[in-house]
Computed example of a mutant assay.
Amino acid sequence: MMETGKQFYGIIPPVPTILFKEGKLDRKGMGNLIDYLIESNVNGLFFLGSGGEFSQMSAELRKEVAEFATSYVNGRVPVLIGTGTPGTNETIALSLHAKKVGADGVVIVNPYYFKLTEESIFQHYCEIAENVDLPILFYNYPELTGVDLSPELVLSLAERYPNIVGIKDTVVSVGHTREMITTVKSKFPDFMVFSGYDDHLLNNLALGGAGSIPLTSTFAPELSVGIYQAFKQGNYGKAIELHQKLASIIRVYKLDSPFMNVVKAAIHLKGVDISTECLAPVRSATNAQIEELKKILFETTEVKYGFNYSNKEDLND
């Protein structure tokens, strides 16, 4: 009997993997970030997503991160582990490992590199669902995978496998997420649709979605968490106010590509004691990028990011 009962909702940050320069896991820094996020009232944590640099990692490092994360969180919030790979067998192996170390669910991006047919993607997820006794969320990111998971495909898989429980829909078009919600949730009301892009959160909630898995929530959780809490309390004015700030702060993503280096720098500026090293080919943020980052953070939030906001001259320190 497949496990299906776990419910995920709200704001679930995709946690960056904190590493030393040589690519080894910085356990102390990772713990500092986990504690900070849990204390910020997030509703869960997602490890080894795109912002967690899974695509640059060996299977051994992915397993080490999964084991450390689930152990350190220790049941304080639900833990999701990203286990997607281009191959079905390796994805199953990583998913079974995630279950072994205590994850509450897995998030599986569709195979990348080859552009599979919809039938091949269907069979890929069928084989995973039949072999992995954990709640499964899809990760739809067509901008990087080259293939979109259609609402009809997701519905057909949810109809067949009760352990397929949700999706992170990282798509530019809010209409895609709307169709995902109306198509799948009309038949499975408990199916969880999360927005991947940060500024889609409010729209997601208004349509009946589950929340968001936004990378900005790793360094500005007060924005996404605040939107979610205000919406649930019916304080829509506050939700809109915070949404406008969130829509502005996502300018940090334009500072580099990929942008996990500036995100780690933002977390460090927030005052969380972490290493900001990244796995090659990603490089650490430059001084110029950090200066631009400081300006964006100063303009979009009243929270102090590791320097004195009362004096704009300090932005250049």
Rank of each mutant, 00 (worst) to 15 (best):
K6W: 10
Q7P: 01
Q7R: 14
P13Q: 03
V15H: 01
V15I: 07
P16Q: 07
L19P: 04
F20L: 06
G29Q: 08
G31P: 03
N32P: 02
I34S: 05
I38K: 09
V42T: 10
V42A: 04
F46Y: 12
F47C: 03
L48T: 08
G51Q: 13
Q56I: 02
E60L: 13
V65Y: 04
A66F: 00
T70K: 12
Y72E: 13
L80I: 13
G82L: 12
T85S: 09
S95W: 11
H97K: 08
A98P: 01
K100L: 10
V106Q: 08
V109E: 04
V109K: 07
N110I: 01
T117S: 15
E119T: 13
I121E: 06
H124E: 12
H124I: 12
H124G: 10
Y125V: 13
I128M: 14
V132I: 13
P142K: 10
E143G: 02
L149G: 08
P151Q: 13
E152Q: 15
L155S: 12
V165C: 09
G166Q: 07
I167K: 10
I167L: 09
S173E: 13
V174S: 04
G175A: 00
H176Y: 01
R178D: 05
V184K: 09
V184Y: 05
S186R: 14
S186L: 06
M192Q: 12
M192E: 11
M192G: 01
F194S: 05
Y197W: 14
Y197F: 14
D199M: 03
L201Y: 09
L202F: 12
L202G: 02
L205M: 12
G208T: 08
S212I: 11
S212R: 13
P214A: 14
T218N: 08
F219A: 00
F219T: 01
V225A: 07
V225G: 04
Y228K: 12
Y228N: 10
Q233H: 09
N235V: 06
N235F: 09
G237P: 04
A239D: 04
E241W: 05
Q244N: 06
K245M: 04
L246A: 05
I249K: 00
R251L: 08
V252I: 15
L255C: 06
N261I: 02
V263L: 06
A265M: 06
A266C: 01
H268K: 06
V272A: 04
D273A: 10
D273V: 07
I274R: 01
S275R: 05
S284C: 11
A285P: 09
I290R: 06
E291K: 14
E291I: 08
K295E: 15
E302Y: 11
V303T: 05
V303F: 01
K304G: 05
G306H: 00
G306N: 00
Y309Q: 07
K312T: 14
K312Q: 14
E313F: 15
D317P: 08
